[in-house]
Amino acid sequence: MKKLLPTLLAALCIAGTAQAQDAGTLKKIKETGQITLGYRETSIPFSYLNDKQQPIGYAVEICSHVVDAVKAELKMPALKVNMQPVTSSNRIPLLQNGTIDMECGSTTNSVERQKQVSFGPTYFRIQVSAAVKKTSGISTLAELNGKNISTTSGTTAVPLLKGYEKTKNVDVKEIYGKDHGESFLLLQDDRVVAFVMDDILLAGQIANARDPSLYKIIPESLRAEPYGPMIRKDDPSFKALVDKALTALYKSPEMEKIYAKWYTSPIPTATPGKTINLNFPMTPALKADLAAPNDKGV
Protein backbone atom coordinates (compact mmCIF):
# COMPACT_ATOMS: atom_id res chain seq x y z
CA MET A 1 0.00 0.00 0.00
CA LYS A 2 2.78 2.42 0.81
CA LYS A 3 4.15 2.11 -2.68
CA LEU A 4 1.10 3.68 -4.25
CA LEU A 5 2.61 7.10 -4.45
CA PRO A 6 5.01 6.55 -7.39
CA THR A 7 2.24 4.91 -9.45
CA LEU A 8 -0.15 7.68 -8.61
CA LEU A 9 2.37 10.37 -9.50
CA ALA A 10 3.12 8.72 -12.81
CA ALA A 11 -0.59 8.64 -13.59
CA LEU A 12 -0.91 12.30 -12.71
CA CYS A 13 1.97 13.31 -14.97
CA ILE A 14 0.22 11.67 -17.89
CA ALA A 15 -3.03 13.30 -16.81
CA GLY A 16 -1.43 16.71 -16.80
CA THR A 17 -0.35 16.50 -20.39
CA ALA A 18 -3.71 15.17 -21.50
CA GLN A 19 -5.30 18.57 -21.54
CA ALA A 20 -2.90 19.96 -24.09
CA GLN A 21 -4.65 19.54 -27.41
CA ASP A 22 -3.46 20.39 -30.85
CA ALA A 23 -5.53 23.19 -32.29
CA GLY A 24 -6.65 23.03 -35.89
CA THR A 25 -9.71 20.88 -36.37
CA LEU A 26 -9.53 21.42 -40.13
CA LYS A 27 -5.94 20.19 -40.22
CA LYS A 28 -6.94 17.14 -38.21
CA ILE A 29 -9.90 16.41 -40.50
CA LYS A 30 -7.71 16.75 -43.55
CA GLU A 31 -5.03 14.43 -42.20
CA THR A 32 -7.36 11.74 -40.91
CA GLY A 33 -9.89 11.97 -43.74
CA GLN A 34 -12.75 11.93 -41.27
CA ILE A 35 -14.88 14.18 -39.11
CA THR A 36 -16.68 13.02 -35.99
CA LEU A 37 -19.94 14.60 -34.88
CA GLY A 38 -21.26 14.13 -31.35
CA TYR A 39 -25.01 13.54 -31.06
CA ARG A 40 -27.51 13.02 -28.25
CA GLU A 41 -29.70 9.97 -28.08
CA THR A 42 -32.83 11.39 -26.45
CA SER A 43 -32.74 15.14 -27.17
CA ILE A 44 -35.90 15.24 -29.30
CA PRO A 45 -36.02 16.89 -31.86
CA PHE A 46 -32.44 18.22 -31.89
CA SER A 47 -30.61 14.99 -31.99
CA TYR A 48 -32.01 11.58 -31.19
CA LEU A 49 -32.24 7.99 -32.41
CA ASN A 50 -34.91 6.81 -34.82
CA ASP A 51 -36.30 3.27 -34.88
CA LYS A 52 -33.23 2.02 -36.75
CA GLN A 53 -31.01 3.52 -34.01
CA GLN A 54 -29.75 6.15 -36.47
CA PRO A 55 -29.13 9.69 -35.19
CA ILE A 56 -31.49 12.27 -36.72
CA GLY A 57 -32.81 15.71 -35.77
CA TYR A 58 -32.80 19.45 -36.27
CA ALA A 59 -29.25 19.93 -34.95
CA VAL A 60 -27.96 16.90 -36.85
CA GLU A 61 -29.41 18.36 -40.06
CA ILE A 62 -27.90 21.78 -39.40
CA CYS A 63 -24.51 20.19 -38.70
CA SER A 64 -24.68 18.33 -42.00
CA HIS A 65 -24.49 21.75 -43.67
CA VAL A 66 -21.25 22.40 -41.80
CA VAL A 67 -19.95 19.03 -42.99
CA ASP A 68 -20.80 20.04 -46.57
CA ALA A 69 -18.86 23.26 -46.07
CA VAL A 70 -15.87 21.30 -44.73
CA LYS A 71 -15.98 18.99 -47.76
CA ALA A 72 -15.99 21.99 -50.08
CA GLU A 73 -13.26 23.84 -48.18
CA LEU A 74 -10.89 20.86 -48.05
CA LYS A 75 -11.94 19.57 -51.47
CA MET A 76 -12.70 16.19 -49.92
CA PRO A 77 -16.06 15.05 -51.30
CA ALA A 78 -15.48 11.55 -49.87
CA LEU A 79 -14.91 12.80 -46.31
CA LYS A 80 -15.92 10.11 -43.84
CA VAL A 81 -18.49 11.26 -41.24
CA ASN A 82 -18.50 9.40 -37.91
CA MET A 83 -21.36 9.77 -35.45
CA GLN A 84 -20.50 9.44 -31.76
CA PRO A 85 -23.19 9.41 -29.05
CA VAL A 86 -22.56 11.80 -26.15
CA THR A 87 -24.39 12.71 -22.93
CA SER A 88 -24.82 15.90 -20.93
CA SER A 89 -21.93 14.78 -18.78
CA ASN A 90 -19.32 13.72 -21.31
CA ARG A 91 -19.88 16.04 -24.28
CA ILE A 92 -17.30 18.63 -23.18
CA PRO A 93 -14.44 16.24 -22.31
CA LEU A 94 -15.04 14.31 -25.53
CA LEU A 95 -14.80 17.50 -27.54
CA GLN A 96 -11.68 18.55 -25.66
CA ASN A 97 -9.87 15.25 -26.03
CA GLY A 98 -10.59 15.14 -29.75
CA THR A 99 -13.03 12.22 -29.75
CA ILE A 100 -15.61 14.47 -31.41
CA ASP A 101 -14.98 17.55 -33.57
CA MET A 102 -18.37 19.21 -33.16
CA GLU A 103 -21.38 18.53 -30.99
CA CYS A 104 -24.80 18.72 -32.60
CA GLY A 105 -27.27 18.53 -29.78
CA SER A 106 -29.05 20.62 -27.21
CA THR A 107 -26.14 22.40 -25.56
CA THR A 108 -26.70 25.77 -23.91
CA ASN A 109 -24.19 28.40 -24.97
CA SER A 110 -23.20 29.70 -21.53
CA VAL A 111 -20.46 32.11 -20.53
CA GLU A 112 -19.20 29.49 -18.09
CA ARG A 113 -18.86 26.91 -20.87
CA GLN A 114 -17.20 29.44 -23.17
CA LYS A 115 -14.19 29.26 -20.85
CA GLN A 116 -13.74 25.65 -22.04
CA VAL A 117 -15.28 25.44 -25.49
CA SER A 118 -16.54 27.61 -28.31
CA PHE A 119 -19.95 27.80 -29.99
CA GLY A 120 -21.20 28.33 -33.52
CA PRO A 121 -24.18 30.62 -34.24
CA THR A 122 -27.26 30.02 -32.06
CA TYR A 123 -29.84 27.73 -33.70
CA PHE A 124 -32.43 27.66 -30.96
CA ARG A 125 -33.58 29.59 -27.92
CA ILE A 126 -35.28 27.86 -25.00
CA GLN A 127 -36.84 28.71 -21.65
CA VAL A 128 -35.87 26.62 -18.64
CA SER A 129 -39.20 25.51 -17.17
CA ALA A 130 -40.92 22.47 -15.67
CA ALA A 131 -43.22 19.74 -16.97
CA VAL A 132 -45.94 18.52 -14.61
CA LYS A 133 -48.92 16.22 -14.82
CA LYS A 134 -52.15 18.15 -15.41
CA THR A 135 -53.77 16.26 -12.52
CA SER A 136 -51.21 17.72 -10.09
CA GLY A 137 -52.92 21.13 -10.31
CA ILE A 138 -49.54 22.88 -10.25
CA SER A 139 -49.27 25.97 -12.47
CA THR A 140 -46.36 28.00 -11.07
CA LEU A 141 -42.76 27.17 -10.17
CA ALA A 142 -43.32 28.43 -6.62
CA GLU A 143 -45.87 25.66 -6.07
CA LEU A 144 -43.06 23.13 -6.39
CA ASN A 145 -41.98 24.09 -2.87
CA GLY A 146 -41.50 21.01 -0.72
CA LYS A 147 -42.07 18.65 -3.67
CA ASN A 148 -39.89 16.02 -5.31
CA ILE A 149 -38.70 17.02 -8.75
CA SER A 150 -36.37 15.46 -11.32
CA THR A 151 -33.72 17.08 -13.44
CA THR A 152 -30.87 15.80 -15.59
CA SER A 153 -27.39 15.89 -14.08
CA GLY A 154 -24.77 17.88 -15.98
CA THR A 155 -27.26 20.44 -17.35
CA THR A 156 -27.49 24.19 -16.74
CA ALA A 157 -30.85 23.57 -15.05
CA VAL A 158 -29.08 22.27 -11.94
CA PRO A 159 -27.31 25.49 -10.80
CA LEU A 160 -30.31 27.53 -12.04
CA LEU A 161 -32.62 25.55 -9.85
CA LYS A 162 -30.30 25.91 -6.86
CA GLY A 163 -30.15 29.66 -7.46
CA TYR A 164 -33.95 29.86 -7.74
CA GLU A 165 -34.37 27.94 -4.51
CA LYS A 166 -32.13 30.41 -2.70
CA THR A 167 -33.59 33.64 -4.03
CA LYS A 168 -37.24 32.60 -3.79
CA ASN A 169 -36.88 30.66 -0.57
CA VAL A 170 -38.27 27.60 -2.29
CA ASP A 171 -37.12 24.18 -1.22
CA VAL A 172 -37.45 21.35 -3.73
CA LYS A 173 -35.95 17.87 -3.48
CA GLU A 174 -34.12 16.87 -6.64
CA ILE A 175 -33.61 13.43 -8.14
CA TYR A 176 -30.95 13.46 -10.83
CA GLY A 177 -31.60 11.44 -13.97
CA LYS A 178 -28.65 10.41 -16.12
CA ASP A 179 -30.46 11.51 -19.29
CA HIS A 180 -33.66 13.35 -20.19
CA GLY A 181 -35.53 10.12 -20.90
CA GLU A 182 -34.79 8.82 -17.42
CA SER A 183 -35.73 12.13 -15.75
CA PHE A 184 -39.03 12.14 -17.64
CA LEU A 185 -39.83 8.56 -16.67
CA LEU A 186 -39.56 9.57 -13.01
CA LEU A 187 -42.37 12.03 -13.76
CA GLN A 188 -44.34 9.52 -15.82
CA ASP A 189 -44.22 7.00 -12.97
CA ASP A 190 -45.25 9.64 -10.39
CA ARG A 191 -41.95 9.39 -8.57
CA VAL A 192 -41.66 13.19 -8.85
CA VAL A 193 -44.24 15.92 -9.50
CA ALA A 194 -42.16 17.92 -11.98
CA PHE A 195 -39.25 17.59 -14.41
CA VAL A 196 -37.26 20.82 -14.58
CA MET A 197 -35.54 21.27 -17.94
CA ASP A 198 -35.47 23.28 -21.16
CA ASP A 199 -39.03 23.72 -22.47
CA ILE A 200 -38.41 22.31 -25.93
CA LEU A 201 -36.84 19.16 -24.51
CA LEU A 202 -39.83 18.83 -22.20
CA ALA A 203 -42.12 19.21 -25.21
CA GLY A 204 -40.16 16.49 -26.98
CA GLN A 205 -40.44 14.12 -24.03
CA ILE A 206 -44.15 14.86 -23.63
CA ALA A 207 -44.89 14.33 -27.32
CA ASN A 208 -43.04 11.03 -27.14
CA ALA A 209 -44.83 9.91 -23.95
CA ARG A 210 -47.30 7.07 -23.92
CA ASP A 211 -50.12 9.57 -23.28
CA PRO A 212 -49.03 13.15 -24.13
CA SER A 213 -52.37 14.61 -23.01
CA LEU A 214 -51.47 13.95 -19.35
CA TYR A 215 -48.70 16.56 -19.22
CA LYS A 216 -48.26 20.29 -19.48
CA ILE A 217 -45.37 22.75 -19.30
CA ILE A 218 -45.58 25.50 -16.66
CA PRO A 219 -45.79 28.89 -18.46
CA GLU A 220 -42.98 30.37 -16.40
CA SER A 221 -39.27 30.37 -16.97
CA LEU A 222 -36.11 30.28 -14.88
CA ARG A 223 -34.05 31.69 -17.75
CA ALA A 224 -33.92 31.95 -21.54
CA GLU A 225 -30.93 30.16 -23.07
CA PRO A 226 -29.44 29.92 -26.57
CA TYR A 227 -28.45 26.55 -28.10
CA GLY A 228 -25.65 26.26 -30.61
CA PRO A 229 -23.23 23.74 -32.12
CA MET A 230 -20.26 23.24 -29.79
CA ILE A 231 -16.72 23.24 -31.17
CA ARG A 232 -13.23 23.34 -29.68
CA LYS A 233 -11.95 26.60 -28.25
CA ASP A 234 -9.13 28.59 -29.82
CA ASP A 235 -9.57 27.18 -33.31
CA PRO A 236 -10.23 30.31 -35.41
CA SER A 237 -10.13 28.64 -38.84
CA PHE A 238 -12.75 26.03 -37.99
CA LYS A 239 -14.86 28.56 -36.08
CA ALA A 240 -14.83 30.88 -39.12
CA LEU A 241 -15.93 28.04 -41.37
CA VAL A 242 -18.79 27.03 -39.03
CA ASP A 243 -19.91 30.67 -38.67
CA LYS A 244 -19.85 31.29 -42.41
CA ALA A 245 -21.69 28.09 -43.33
CA LEU A 246 -24.39 28.54 -40.70
CA THR A 247 -24.89 32.28 -41.25
CA ALA A 248 -25.58 31.51 -44.90
CA LEU A 249 -27.96 28.70 -43.95
CA TYR A 250 -29.86 30.69 -41.31
CA LYS A 251 -30.49 33.56 -43.72
CA SER A 252 -31.59 31.29 -46.55
CA PRO A 253 -35.23 30.31 -47.11
CA GLU A 254 -34.20 26.70 -46.49
CA MET A 255 -33.95 27.40 -42.77
CA GLU A 256 -37.69 27.91 -42.44
CA LYS A 257 -38.26 24.56 -44.11
CA ILE A 258 -35.83 22.85 -41.77
CA TYR A 259 -37.55 24.44 -38.77
CA ALA A 260 -41.01 23.46 -39.99
CA LYS A 261 -39.82 19.91 -40.68
CA TRP A 262 -38.77 19.32 -37.07
CA TYR A 263 -41.05 21.56 -34.99
CA THR A 264 -44.42 21.80 -36.66
CA SER A 265 -44.67 18.55 -38.63
CA PRO A 266 -44.83 14.88 -37.61
CA ILE A 267 -41.33 13.50 -36.95
CA PRO A 268 -40.20 9.89 -36.55
CA THR A 269 -39.51 8.37 -33.11
CA ALA A 270 -37.63 5.36 -31.78
CA THR A 271 -40.83 3.32 -31.97
CA PRO A 272 -41.33 1.89 -35.47
CA GLY A 273 -44.23 3.57 -37.26
CA LYS A 274 -44.89 6.10 -34.50
CA THR A 275 -44.60 9.81 -35.32
CA ILE A 276 -45.05 12.82 -33.08
CA ASN A 277 -45.69 16.50 -33.71
CA LEU A 278 -44.19 19.01 -31.29
CA ASN A 279 -46.39 21.91 -32.50
CA PHE A 280 -43.75 24.40 -31.44
CA PRO A 281 -43.89 27.44 -33.78
CA MET A 282 -40.84 29.67 -34.05
CA THR A 283 -40.60 32.23 -31.24
CA PRO A 284 -39.85 35.92 -31.95
CA ALA A 285 -36.59 35.55 -30.00
CA LEU A 286 -35.37 32.78 -32.30
CA LYS A 287 -36.49 34.72 -35.38
CA ALA A 288 -34.23 37.54 -34.23
CA ASP A 289 -31.33 35.15 -33.66
CA LEU A 290 -31.64 33.64 -37.11
CA ALA A 291 -31.96 37.06 -38.79
CA ALA A 292 -28.77 38.22 -37.09
CA PRO A 293 -26.72 35.07 -36.43
CA ASN A 294 -24.66 35.37 -33.21
CA ASP A 295 -22.87 33.25 -30.65
CA LYS A 296 -23.64 35.24 -27.51
CA GLY A 297 -23.83 33.08 -24.40
CA VAL A 298 -25.83 33.50 -21.19
Binding site: L12, A18, S89, I92, P93, Q96, S153, G154, P159
Partner: peptide, 19 residues
Protein backbone atom coordinates in the same frame (compact mmCIF):
# COMPACT_ATOMS: atom_id res chain seq x y z
CA UNK B 1 -18.45 9.44 -6.99
CA UNK B 2 -21.56 11.48 -7.80
CA UNK B 3 -19.97 14.60 -6.33
CA UNK B 4 -16.76 13.88 -8.24
CA UNK B 5 -18.65 13.67 -11.52
CA UNK B 6 -20.67 16.75 -10.66
CA UNK B 7 -17.51 18.72 -9.98
CA UNK B 8 -16.05 17.51 -13.28
CA UNK B 9 -19.19 18.44 -15.19
CA UNK B 10 -19.59 21.88 -13.69
CA UNK B 11 -15.96 23.03 -13.53
CA UNK B 12 -14.63 20.89 -16.44
CA UNK B 13 -11.68 20.11 -14.14
CA UNK B 14 -12.04 16.36 -14.48
CA UNK B 15 -8.45 15.47 -13.61
CA UNK B 16 -8.48 17.43 -10.37
CA UNK B 17 -11.86 16.03 -9.33
CA UNK B 18 -10.94 12.44 -10.12
CA UNK B 19 -7.53 12.74 -8.46
Amino acid sequence: FFRTREMGEMTFRYYEAFT
